[in-house]
Design a protein around this nucleic acid. Structure first.
Length: 216
DNA sequence: AGGACGATTAACT
DNA sequence: GTTAATCGTCCTG
C-alpha cells in the first residue's frame, strides 16, 4: 500500500504495518490518524505528532526489562495490539505493540492534534484545550485498562489508526525519551523519541480538514 | 504485609 | 526551576 498517495478515504493500518522494527514504526506513525470509537458511536480522532520507541528486554527504559509480567504481557504478544498501562497512581498510557509475536516492543503515543470530537476532548480535560501529553491523550479519548491488549487491526476495533500521508523528514525531529530519569546509559539518551515540528502542525491539520471534506 | 517506585501532570516558587 | 498528588505493580520478607 502506498501511504504517501493522496486519498479521500482513509484505510486502516493493517497488522503488517506494526510487524516491523519499532524505530521505523514510531517514525511512520507520525501524521497518522488515531481513531477512538466510543460505545455510543461517537468518533474521536487526532493526528499523531509525537511517539517513543521501547524496544525489547535489553532496553533498560522499557517495561520489558524485568521480563514478562501480568502488566506488560501485551508487549510480548502479536503486533497491532494496544499495550495500556497505569502509572503515577493516576495516569494511563497508550502504546502500540510492534515487531514479531514473542518480542516485547511497543510505541508510546505521546501527543495528538485533535481532529474529530475536539470539543468532547476539551471537556474531559477541564479548561485545557489540547490532547498533548501521553496521559492527557488517554483521558481525552477515554482510554484505560479496558483497552489493554485491544486488537487495533480487526474490523470491530474501538481503537485503530487510519493511514494518512507520511510526514516528510524536514518536519521530523528526534530526541531522548522523556521521563527516564533513573534509567542507565546508554538507554537514557537513545534518540528514540520522534516529533513533528510545531511549525508543521498547522499545515498538517489544515490538510486533514481538506481531506475530511473531500471524503464525504 | 509492607515499601519503593514510576514512559506524568499541574501548580507552585 | 521544584514538588505534591496518588495507587497499581512488583519485589522483599
Amino acid at each position: 500500500m502506498d501511504y504517501n498517495s493522496p486519498m479521500t478515504s482513509a484505510p486502516r493500518l493493517p497488522r503488517d504495518f506494526f510487524a516491523h522494527p519499532t524505530l521505523a514504526v514510531a517514525r511512520q506513525l507520525l501524521g497518522q490518524r488515531l481513531v477512538r470509537l466510543e460505545g455510543d458511536g461517537e468518533r474521536l480522532s487526532g493526528l499523531i505528532v509525537e511517539t517513543e520507541a521501547y524496544i525489547g528486554s535489553q532496553d533498560l527504559g522499557c517495561h520489558a526489562k524485568a521480563g514478562r509480567t501480568a502488566r506488560n504481557a501485551a508487549m510480548w504478544g502479536p503486533p497491532g495490539h494496544a499495550y495500556v498501562y497505569f502509572t503515577y497512581g493516576m495516569h494511563w498510557m497508550l502504546n502500540m505493540v510492534t515487531e514479531a509475536n514473542g518480542f516485547p516492543a511497543a510505541v508510546l503515543i505521546r501527543s495528538l492534534i485533535p481532529i474529530e470530537g475536539a470539543a468532547l476532548m476539551r471537556r474531559r480535560r477541564g479548561r485545557l484545550p489540547l490532547a498533548d501529553g501521553p496521559a492527557k491523550l488517554c483521558q481525552a479519548l477515554a482510554i484505560d485498562r479496558g483497552l489493554d491488549g485491544h486488537d487495533l487491526c480487526v474490523p470491530q476495533a474501538q481503537v485503530f489508526v487510519e493511514a494518512r500521508p507520511q510526514v516528510q523528514d524536514p518536519f521530523v525531529t528526534t530526541s531522548p525519551r522523556v521521563g527516564l530519569n533513573t534509567v542507565p546509559e546508554p538507554w537514557k539518551s537513545k534518540p528514540w523519541r520522534f516529533l513533528v515540528s510545531r511549525q508543521h502542525h498547522q499545515k498538517l491539520s489544515k490538510e486533514e480538514r481538506v481531506d475530511e471534506i473531500a471524503g464525504r
